[in-house]
Amino acid sequence: MNRGRAMVRHTCRGSVVLFTVLLALFFSTVPGTGAAFRNMKEGSPALPFALKDFEGKDVAFKPDSGKITILSFVKLSQDRSKEQLKDLVALHKELSPKGIEFLVVASYTDTAEEAKKAIAEFGVPFPIAQDKDQKVYGDYGLFILPASGIIGKDGKFVFEHSSHGRDFKDVVGGKAKVVAGLMTEDEYRKLITPVESVKKSKEESESERLISLGRTLLKRGMPDKAAERFGKAVEIDPKNPAARIAFGESLVASKKYDDALVQFTKARELAPNSKEAQLGIGTVHLEKGEADKAIREISDAAMLNPKPGKAYFWLGAAYEKKGDLPNAVKYYKKAVEKFIKE
């Protein structure tokens, strides 16, 4: 009997590890914000490779060719990848005459039929290679699909972009123009800076600027510096729940849990239906080892959220900390299912 229980615990722990790894990948890949590649950073030499397209023709990428290249990794059955292909076709029409080259690498799971359909539907004029052995994916350290990188004339990475959003053509195409000398950095910044349709007070605008700066610092692994910006944003605009939530998240990252709880609680007072504030409170309880409190708060956050994948992940973590491995696995599974659908 004891041996059977031990086997169940072993199986559950294995599942917990698996789902934690899967969810870590999901959370590290927010569209357009996180790193697209593990092994390619700005200034890294791009790696050459030789693949075949879906008709068996050779496709080679030579970073030292002296040309600017937009290199994109896609999964042809994925909606975001299809949208990216459409945008790449539009960018190719504009930028190919300027000497910028395009190359797409498809997932090892993609089929010749899917490639043929995509090429016909979107009028793809550039090569789509298949990485059957996932070697290129591994060499470049793909975090997410779709993902794109821009390689300069010197063969080095100059820009990376994760996932796909409505601003893809401006963000990626604009940066390619900067690299090619077709646009200045100032023009690029103006292009990708959202235009405010509603006039905001000086305090609101400055608070939002500080929040944006703080989020960038947080993503770069500098929670203390991020907290300084978020704290200033709260000071300037104390009734802004987004500023308080961001401040709370940075304080959690700095392990200042009591201070974080103050910010999340105030944010919930300002916005009673805020799922992020509720989830923040639950996260603080989890980090403090208060699993039962965490489960109550995070369960409420999941009910408030039409896309509860993140809440399910933290519920799994709370149950794991409590030692309830079957429920931990249950919620990790639900989180993965939600993220796959979303």
Rank of each mutant, 00 (worst) to 15 (best):
M1T: 09
N2D: 15
G4M: 11
S28D: 11
T33H: 10
T33I: 08
R38H: 13
S44I: 05
P45I: 06
F49N: 05
F49I: 04
A50Q: 12
L51D: 02
D53A: 11
G56D: 01
G56C: 03
D58K: 12
F61G: 00
I68V: 15
T69L: 11
S72F: 06
V74F: 12
S77R: 09
E83L: 13
E83Y: 09
Q84V: 08
L85E: 10
K86L: 12
P97E: 14
S107K: 03
Y108R: 13
A115V: 04
A118K: 09
E121G: 05
F122A: 12
P127V: 07
I128K: 05
Q130M: 10
K132G: 09
K132R: 12
Y140E: 07
L142F: 03
L142R: 01
L142S: 00
F143M: 13
G149R: 09
I150N: 01
V158E: 15
H164K: 08
R166W: 10
F168R: 03
D170S: 11
V171T: 13
K177Y: 06
V178T: 09
E185P: 05
E187A: 12
T193G: 07
P194N: 08
P194V: 07
S197T: 14
S197Q: 14
K199W: 04
K200A: 12
K200S: 14
S201M: 04
K202E: 15
K202S: 13
A226C: 02
A233L: 01
A246N: 08
A246S: 14
E249T: 03
S250Y: 02
K255H: 10
K256G: 01
D258C: 00
F264Q: 01
R268P: 00
L270E: 01
E276R: 07
A277C: 01
L286P: 02
L286I: 01
L286F: 03
K288P: 00
G289Q: 02
E297N: 11
N305K: 05
G316N: 02
A317M: 11
E320S: 13
P326I: 07
Y332N: 01
F339T: 01
I340K: 13
K341V: 03
